[in-house]
């Protein structure tokens, strides 16, 4: 619970070429039509995505860069170096985080906690991912012609940041629930949605129980990147545990970003999937007054190529952050 009501005063999202053709292209602040972003490597492109998202977030806010104290974030690539290198050019205290695709809400929850407890006035949190950089780290080379199963997901090229402040106008973070590592023994890295679904279910249940709420309290419960398979599985699991969420109330960032005809198989994924969808599209909806209360549950699949090859099952995590419209919109 955050009693001091930390406010998200500004957000910034950047997307790549696939995102530009997607369903929520209008909600991006900046879109690139080249996946290299004129950089020498995909990793550098990802670094630039994050730098741009940070700059946009600060430019859109009423404050100056010098006033921001900390940055919390991470990504999927080798020891989160793209994030670290992006922060190299900024004069900010830096906390590097890794919770795979749950990094977005992990950062948001921690940033809210810092601001709520008066440890800081202004904190930026955000994350970036790049389709080609992630593919080459976790799977095969971009041009390699292997056939992916229909449960595979498409990593988002993009970055999303949010600036959290003690006061200001914007959506308010009311509470957060930090998830536990959940491992249901699934081993297929081409079905991350299915592996992550139980983690999302566990966190949603814990959140509702701790705050003594029914799911209908929220206009939308937004999962991170479960995709088609994960969404279906988690709905069934929730139903079996006696929690009934209406289908139209339960949305997934992985299914919100792209159009159905795009070649993305089961949906979007990547740390940026939840970041661009929540910080971009869904917060926009709150600002426009279309929805008032959301529960953002980003899900992360905490495997590495090494653990998969060594036949470990996939441990997963989900963190939930409740965001409500600011007092001016209630």
């Amino acid at each position: 619970m955050f009693t001091n009501k930390p406010v998200i005063i500004s957000t910034g999202t950047v997307g790549g070429p696939m995102e530009a053709k997607g369903k929520i292209a209008d909600s991006f602040d900046l879109l690139h039509d080249d996946q290299w972003l004129e950089q020498a490597s995909f990793e550098k492109a990802q670094q630039l995505l994050l730098e741009q998202a940070i700059d946009i977030t600060i430019n859109k806010s009423p404050i100056e860069e010098e006033q921001v104290e900390f940055f919390l974030g991470g990504d999927l690539i080798n020891q989160i170096t793209p994030t670290t290198l992006a922060l190299n050019s900024k004069d900010l205290g830096y906390f590097g985080l890794f919770n795979a695709c749950a990094t977005s809400t992990e950062g948001l929850a921690l940033a809210a906690l810092m601001v709520n407890n008066q440890a800081a006035n202004y904190v930026i949190t955000g994350t970036a991912s790049h389709n080609a950089a992630t593919e080459r780290q976790y799977r095969y080379p971009t041009e390699y012609g292997s056939q992916k199963p229909p449960t595979a997901q498409w990593t988002v090229t993009g970055a999303g940041c949010a600036l959290i402040a003690q006061e200001g106008t914007g959506p308010v973070i009311t509470s957060a629930t930090i998830g536990k590592v959940i491992d249901m023994g699934l081993t297929d890295p081409f079905n991350m949605g299915g592996a992550m679904a139980p983690a999302a279910v566990d966190t949603i249940m814990t959140h509702l129980k701790e705050r003594n709420l029914s799911p209908s309290y929220y206009d939308l419960i937004i999962t991170g990147d479960l995709g088609k398979v994960g969404r279906e599985s988690s709905l069934e699991l929730l139903n079996q545990k006696g929690i009934h969420i209406r289908k139209e109330q339960y949305v997934d960032c992985g299914l919100s970003i792209y159009k159905r005809e795009q070649p993305i198989l089961a949906g979007a994924s990547g740390t940026a999937a939840s970041a661009v969808a929540i910080y971009g599209y869904y917060l926009d909806q709150i600002k426009k007054g279309k929805i008032k209360k959301i529960l953002a549950v980003a899900t992360g699949s905490l495997h590495s190529p090494l653990t998969v090859q060594q036949k470990n099952s996939i441990p997963c995590i989900a963190h939930a952050v409740a965001i409500e419209a600011g007092s001016d919109k209630l």
Partner: peptide, 8 residues
């Protein structure tokens, strides 16, 4: 559940 839901 997963076996049932997984897209084959």
């Amino acid at each position: 559940i997963q076996q049932k839901k997984e897209i084959k």
